[in-house]
Design a protein around this nucleic acid. Structure first.
Lengths: 212, 212
DNA sequence: CAGTGTGAAGAGGTTCACAGCG
DNA sequence: CGCTGTGAACCTCTTCACACTG
């Protein structure tokens, strides 16, 4: 990995994490036929301050026009380019239990840059099944097949007890981004991104604030 | 709402948000039969520093023993009490499409403090269905039924276009915590908690770091 | 002497406020 | 004149480092 160039300021991860929400909101505006928006309009819709929106976007360039605001289709294009979703990423899904099947059926990924192309499970009863247009493959073949297809993005929907082992295999096969649905913390080497989905954790976060 | 008492220091929301992960990890340790852990052990498993763990826990009390560490079953009990999941919360699920059905089938909520007790949808074709032990009810009856049952926690799995309307109804019925699966930002009054689940947003966060 | 609990220092993120431009 | 882009101020969160204790 090349060392940081002095001319490129590093962008805070927390800023990158907000961009998908900006993009989501801008696309909803575009769908309503809007052409122009402003940092305060976006801020209101996103529950953020206008200053934060302007500051975040300014890390990547000057996308607005003073006195006018932002051109929505233009900003959508810029964000898609920045997030590298101006293309479709092939995704490998591991685990075809209830959760994996639900993910496979979910239609929300496609127009946001992702297409599930391979599904693996270790359960002989599931291997060979072809619900939802996928054929479930044997996990013993996973490393090789993932490597051969150069897939770099995975969704992990296996039990917590096997999640780390499976993650290690995925990384061995060349995967560099893992969306982890298993309720456990993954240990991964530098250069591999992990994002966690744990609905129950979100629920517990909220109950803290409820009266008993 | 009573004004803040001077003697109670306010706990940062970001700290509260980490507690469910501490609890999750501690329960995994307990399941392995472990009795004792330390801030550095927990930190390693969670990908955090030991100082952060100690500091976070210190907001709520002195749970450890110097020179020894933390008693796992004791700390589990404390966190369950703090997060108010030393009880089971009744949950209303709205939306019985692919996503809602998947949530209804998901077994991960039960032993973390949540039980789905009511399901609503507005589609006449779905009302009356009783997959997975739930009978889908008419959304027109939702406000009254939620109010009558005093349900305060909801999961929202409706299309983005109707999410705000449905959220408003839930709040009218007395709901104070909403897990929002719809890919849109909800506007809610003070006193209502919202947590968002958007897997595609997480994916886009990660692709930013991938090489093209 | 291992490991907690915690003030203080440091790092990082957000908001302010205004110059500058269309 | 409205709204962006941005240094500077402000605030919040994290890490340090050490007194203290079982």
């Amino acid at each position: 990995m090349p060392h940081k160039s002095a001319s490129v300021k590093t962008i805070p991860d927390i800023v990158v994490g907000r961009l998908p929400f900006y993009l989501r909101t801008l696309r909803a505006l575009a769908a309503e036929g809007r052409e122009i928006t402003s940092s305060s309009d976006l801020g209101n819709r996103l529950g953020l301050t206008s200053a934060q929106i302007r500051k975040d976007l300014s890390y990547f360039g000057e996308f607005g026009k003073q006195g006018l605001g932002y051109n929505i289709p233009f900003l959508v294009d810029q964000l898609r380019r920045i997030l590298k979703v101006d293309r479709v990423w092939e995704v490998v899904l591991v685990g075809f239990g209830d959760l994996g099947r639900a993910i496979a059926h979910y239609h929300g990924f496609h127009d946001r840059g992702f297409e599930i192309r391979m599904v693996f499970d270790s359960d002989p009863a599931k291997i060979g099944q072809s619900l939802a247009g996928f054929t479930v493959d044997d996990m013993n073949a996973m490393v090789e097949k993932v490597r051969a297809a150069k897939v770099r993005v995975a969704m992990l929907a296996v039990p917590a007890t096997s999640a780390q082992k499976v993650a290690d295999l995925l990384i061995k096969g060349g995967v560099r981004a893992i969306l982890n649905y298993a309720p456990t913390t993954l240990n991964v080497p530098k250069g591999v991104a992990v994002q966690n989905i744990d609905p129950a954790a979100h629920m517990q976060h909220m109950t803290y604030y409820l009266e008993p």
